[in-house]
Design a protein around this nucleic acid. Structure first.
Lengths: 208, 208, 208, 208
DNA sequence: GATGAATGAGTGTTCATTCAT
DNA sequence: CATGAATGAACACTCATTCAT
């Protein structure tokens, strides 16, 4: 009677996932401000009030969406970085896996971008704090390349450079591909990734 | 006859500029989706319908806003780049003046960011094409560092590297400071600019 | 057969009483219009649909609430009046016991007031007719002081006065304390009751 | 061009008055909770959004309604009371004019009753404080018979009695006629008023 | 005996736009 | 040159009710 996973939970979870998925699609297509609950419900094929039944409010739905997108990104990048043992390996893995995620998740990307810059929550919270449980926030910190750069410098693997600025530049350079991908779906993002590996591999100097 | 060539009286021009200025402020404060014509008109101190009298529609107002912001950026970056004669000088000038513009135009920056990602025009046009006369588009092309990089390579000033990828990475690294500035108004953007000059100066290799 | 005469199991009756009690609390706290079935169910700790399972509709629930409150009032006032043998005694008992009920049932009072003036049943019935079985209506008639006044006049206990108007005035004066109690929980309602006994004792004139 | 009464003001004021009037009718008919802005607008014959254009929110509309009703009551009762010079005269005038107002303003009465007990404003304000400018609140204080009773006692016109309780009882007795009127439109409220004049005339004792 | 899922009607409110003046 | 009035469409959200389980 009280097994860990109650059967009711499945229906609930599936519907929520379905709604989140459709919401991401709709946001990607028409932009967050135009992505009304009604349009999202229409895409799922249920009544608008059913969406609110499951999430209570649009803010909560956005929470779920943001969490979903962060988790899907984490699921790709973190294992890739962890699989490497050297700082240089981790750096390359960070660049390749992040851009890989961007390549394979165009829709989610558009949605996240639009949501992040348009969303204004009812309470005073920032977008970055939405739907971020402590556990999730902790994992997200691992996506910051600054840690990798500093570890590489401490280990003597990398040369000398302003680590913080380098991290910001790196993130900017990596994220810049999003805009390119969105504008030109045929863009060779993988090639850009390899170029970045080369460029930043040299910039951090180091072993060789 | 009277529509095509309007006398462009002084009052008219002044009012339009005043409205655009207030609109930028309002968008920066509450975000584009919440920036209604009424709020903008309230800030100017005129009736809501007066705004539409001057611009015809909200889309046209957005056109004017985007154009205004691009022009103000051009007015700073283009002369700075043109003042230099070498490719290396132009590259440094591009980085420093762009980041300089970001530092001194926080409000416009917030507004542009919010507008760009939230705005969905009535017709099918993209945001990037809004309010861009041919003459303006031509000038904007000069903001792309790709031209500088290629010129430097042709002149033998720079070494060998994938110019297109380098340009994208550079733009991404430069633009990354916006996010930083917006989140932390006290951030040392100028220092970051100098770091970028160093990092990318090395990356393009060359003269040294 | 099974609808008309339900077994009225203990569980059933207890649950209904529990729901009515919670509904009264919720109505008193947030007002009838804001007292949704969901909020009532939340307070009981059961599902919203369980409330409807027990009462069929919100109108029926209101029926039960009104009946409950009338019965609790009858249980106090009727015995007190019946315990007196003279008209003067009954009059005093009516005043004192009614105000006594008001003093000790503030929450029920707020709820009844809010419900009575806000509720608009689906069918055309008036609020006063809700949940009033014939048997209950008959008993409620005994709460009208008019009968006491007329009996007193017939018995020569009271002097001459327009009995109907005096009854209305008396009910109004007694009920007026509700407003006072609700606004100022510390109000000395008992003292007001004694003053009323004095005032109306004189007004009906009579024996002395 | 700048005469005291601008012509625009007239249209505005007339529309607002029209809306308030219709709102009172609708509230009286279906009760405050069911009196939606849409129903009110339908009765006026304008779009729902036009109501909000004039009042901004439902709360503001309620403000205007309550103020309107209080003012119409003041306009009748205050002059009547002021016209008398003795406390006894003022007391009689208070009773007669208040009941007179009730007789001639049945609809407004139902509306006020329903609104007062159902309305829960967005902010924390009480119903009694809605739409009450200081000036209005000051005038409303003059509707409390307590002042008349106390003045009469000080002047030696009235005998001895608990003035506060007598005032509450008097208000209750006067207000009780509302319920009677609403239930039975043919009820002789004027006769009830005369009875009250007699009953309370004796109760305050005094001169004769 | 009770529940979770879902619904459709209805709520107050915001908005860009039109139009007579 | 500018305004106030008005509108209709859209929005997020609440609610009592239904129904299969």
């Amino acid at each position: 009677m009280s097994t860990a996973a109650r059967p009711e939970s499945f229906t609930r979870t599936a519907r929520r996932a379905q709604i989140v998925g459709c919401a991401i699609e709709v946001i990607a297509e028409v932009g967050y401000p135009q992505a009304s609950i009604r349009k999202i419900a229409d895409r799922v094929g249920i009544a608008m009030s059913a969406v609110l039944y499951h999430f209570g409010s649009k803010d909560n739905l956005v929470d779920a969406i943001v969490e979903h997108m962060y988790r899907s990104m984490l699921a790709i990048v973190v294992p890739a970085v962890d699989a490497e043992s050297t700082a240089a390996g981790k750096l390359d893995a960070y660049i390749r896996s992040t851009i890989g995620y961007f390549r394979t998740h165009r829709v989610a990307l558009v949605a996240l971008t639009s949501t992040a810059t348009s969303f204004q929550p009812g309470d005073g919270r920032r977008v970055e704090e939405l739907g971020l449980s402590d556990e999730l926030a902790e994992q997200l910190a691992r996506l910051d390349p600054l840690a990798i750069l500093q570890a590489g410098q401490r280990a003597g693997e990398f040369g000398e450079f302003p680590a913080e600025s380098m991290a910001i530049a790196l993130r900017g350079a990596v994220n810049a591909v999003v805009e390119k991908i969105l504008r030109d779906p045929g863009y060779d993002a993988r090639g850009y990734g390899e170029d970045l590996v080369e460029i930043f591999g040299r910039a951090v100097g180091g072993s060789r």
